[in-house]
Design a protein around this nucleic acid. Structure first.
Length: 269
DNA sequence: GTCCAGGTTTTTA
DNA sequence: TAAAAACATGGA
């Protein structure tokens, strides 16, 4: 397979607010993913994506087995606004991230901005995560964060989210949150399993399901998506887009937030 | 100094 | 029930 930029754009995918352990210097992207000593690091540039195609872990991470061309075609043929959003950033894909890491990161994300989220997540990894053989710190385990003193968590910049992170970690340890269930259960049951935790509301739950469990039917409604849906889709919810609504959501979110169409600011790099 | 950030919980009317 | 306030933190 020859991966074109229309099939995978590192910038569009990695900076669309779905993952937080990512950086770019002089066109070289660094991506880290995984918990504790299982963390992996990828260094890659847009003009040579072969390391992704040749490594099963990263092929899966970037979801290469899923046909985004077909989804974009379906969206574009049925909604003129979707056609614009798909043309605006055709290289977006939904990453297959570690479920626990994604859930915890989106708990951090509430009432927060992406730059700060990235900093907090990095400090959590450096302070609490175990390193792999290359010395890269992984995302800390649920056990580690459940056991961490709240003031040590807060030192990472979590603010009022410190207890939310602990609650979430504890729920995972106790089996009240079970990722196998989240991936297979009825979507409403999965949502309830998540929102039972104090600190996880409907938006964070949907992000955890879409970005951490690859539940493509989930359609996180943040302030940007509410504006997009109100302005261009007669106030409908995501169900109009069908079983892959979450993918439509990501194209619309990125378009609405960074194109200036809604009067939004351009995303800083 | 004020406002905001891919929200959620708690309080108030 | 529904709307408003509170919640930490740092950058604009």
């Amino acid at each position: 397979m020859i991966l074109t930029e229309n099939m995978l754009s590192l910038e569009q995918t990695l900076l669309s607010g779905q993952c937080f352990r990512v950086g770019c210097r002089d066109g070289l992207w660094t991506v880290r993913s995984g918990a504790d000593e299982n963390v992996r690091e990828l260094n890659i540039s847009q003009n040579d994506l072969r390391p992704i195609e040749e490594d099963p872990y990263w092929s899966n991470f970037f979801d290469l087995q899923t046909d985004y061309e077909a989804m974009k075609k379906y969206f574009s043929e049925n909604w003129e606004v979707m056609r614009k959003a798909c043309l605006y950033a055709p290289g977006i894909r939904i990453l297959r991230q570690n479920s626990w890491e994604a859930l915890a990161c989106f708990v951090v994300s509430q009432n927060n901005n992406i730059k700060r989220i990235m900093g907090i997540v990095e400090r959590l990894c450096l302070r609490f995560g175990k390193k792999n053989s290359d010395g890269v710190s992984g995302f800390p385990s649920a056990q580690t964060l459940a056991d961490a003193p709240l003031d040590k968590l807060r030192d990472c910049g979590l603010g009022f989210r410190d207890a939310y992170i602990r609650n979430t970690a504890t729920a995972v340890l106790d089996g009240n949150i079970d990722f196998d269930c989240l991936k297979s259960e009825d979507i409403e049951k999965a949502r309830k399993m998540l929102t039972a935790v104090k600190g996880i509301g409907p938006k964070v739950a949907d992000c955890a399901l879409l970005f951490g469990c690859h539940r493509l039917d989930c359609f996180p409604m943040d302030v940007w998506m509410k504006r997009v849906m109100a302005c261009y889709f007669d106030g409908c919810d995501g169900t109009i887009f069908g079983k892959n609504a979450g993918v439509a959501q990501q194209y619309l979110f990125h378009w609405g937030r960074t194109s200036g169409i809604l009067g939004g600011e351009k995303e800083e790099k």
